[in-house]
Amino acid sequence: MRNAASIIARVPTVMPDPDEIAAGATRSAEEPIEVISPDEDYGEGQLLLRLRAKDARAYEEVIRDLTPRLLATAIRMLGNEEDSRDAVQDAFLSAFRNIQNFDGKSKLSTWLHRITINAALMKLRTRRRKPAVSINDLLPRHSDDGHFEMPIASWREKPNAEYDIEMRHRVREEIENLPDEYRTVIMLRDVEGLDTAEAGVVLGISESAVKTRLHRARQALRERLAPMFANQSGDQDSERGHP
């Protein structure tokens, strides 16, 4: 039996500003700022002291050290370098302007990674969005007694598939082709490594909604990837279904 409700893709309308994340992700404005000693908190205490003292060399070190990684993240989210550089620059500026509020309870790179993701999502919001489409057809269907309506064709194993240039291109293409809200949640959770709570904050939705959206996104992507792994032997044993 299929799900009765049609799943229509919508891009989240509530998305925190990178400055809000930078200013508020780690402490409220009312809380006193705790001075970090140089020997605690990921060994970055000394660096944070220098950043707070507006030491230009410290700023330069951080930008040079983290830009490649942050740029890679932004490019994965945005797909082009120009927008990605803008997003990374916005992220650095947001972070540096709010460095007094950073409590050092996560690594500086982790904090900046989150801010960059937010800046990239802000950029995405300004772009022309894809038309809302249903992914219902990509979800598994079940009969009234709860069994799969169609057999599950086994995947032909392709060792090291993730290192095959063509395979990598097609997987990225299939992710790109997912409706915005599903593509974004896969990027945040499965590619960028945010946990459910973090993804919920970035997307402005509940953890429960993140999990539901992520699960549907993975199911849809699985279905889109299936033809690449189809067992073409024609062997009936390659299809696993209930007798």
């Binding site: 890679a72 993730e162 993975r218 699985r222 990837l225 299936a226």
Partner: peptide, 15 residues
């Protein structure tokens, strides 16, 4: 296949 999909998404987007 669900687990393979997660792994592929992560690996294929890794620079």
């Amino acid at each position: 296949q669900y687990e393979a999909t997660i792994k592929l998404a992560r690996k294929c987007c890794c620079p």
